[in-house]
Computed example of a mutant assay.
Amino acid sequence: MSKQNKEILLEQERFELKSKSGGGLLRYEVWGAVEGGKTVVTRYNLAYINHAIYQGDNGRVLGFDNAHNYHHRHYMGEIEVVEFISYEAIQERFQQEWLEIVNQTRGIKP
């Protein structure tokens, strides 16, 4: 990345979920740069935190990030490498998986 394409914080959000929506917290942190008029994501950290479901790993039930120079998924303390196609694909997978977890814990099939 050249100096003129300085990395900036693109998104940093926290959503507290009501107990009827499964409870817990959704956290998004996304960094990137504009290259050739297009936004390019360089770093991301997506997490679903719910201490009622999982107490380890600071309550992180599910997470996706690319820290430590590789793309990976956290699920209740386990870490696995994930294939990176695009940030949008990772974000979609995260959305589907945390909704599935919430629905399962509430006894609802997705």
Rank of each mutant, 00 (worst) to 15 (best):
A67N: 10
N5H: 02
G23F: 03
F84N: 13
K20R: 14
H74W: 09
Q91K: 14
E29G: 10
V61M: 06
Y48C: 04
E35P: 00
R14E: 10
P110T: 06
I85H: 15
K38C: 08
E88T: 10
E97L: 10
R73Y: 05
I79N: 12
Q95G: 00
V41T: 05
Y75F: 15
L9K: 12
D57G: 03
N103K: 10
K3D: 09
Q104R: 15
I53A: 07
Y48N: 07
E92C: 03
E11K: 12
F15W: 04
V40G: 01
E100W: 01
Y87W: 14
D65N: 13
G24N: 10
L46E: 09
Y44Q: 04
Y54L: 03
G23C: 09
R93E: 12
V40H: 02
M1N: 03
N103M: 08
V41E: 08
N103T: 03
Q55M: 11
Q91P: 04
D57Y: 14
H74N: 13
E29Y: 13
Q4G: 00
A89L: 08
Q95L: 09
K20Y: 15
H71A: 14
G37C: 05
Q55E: 13
Y75C: 11
L25D: 07
N69R: 15
T39K: 09
R60Y: 06
S2A: 08
E78S: 11
I53T: 05
L26D: 05
G22I: 05
R27K: 15
V102Y: 02
Y48M: 09
G56K: 14
L25N: 09
F64S: 01
M76N: 10
V41D: 05
N103P: 02
I90W: 05
F84E: 15
H71T: 09
K3H: 05
N50E: 12
N69T: 13
R73K: 14
V41F: 04
L46Y: 06
E7T: 11
Q91A: 12
G77A: 03
E83C: 11
N69A: 15
I90L: 10
Q104C: 14
K6Q: 10
F64I: 01
L26I: 09
I49V: 13
Q95Y: 04
F64M: 04
F84Q: 14
N45C: 04
E29T: 11
H74D: 12
G32M: 05
E88N: 14
W31I: 00
R60E: 12
E97T: 00
Y28C: 01
S21D: 15
S86D: 15
T39H: 01
G36L: 08
K109Y: 12
V34P: 02
G37F: 08
G22V: 04
F64G: 01
Y75Q: 12
I79R: 14
Q55K: 09
G77C: 04
Q55P: 06
V30R: 07
I108K: 11
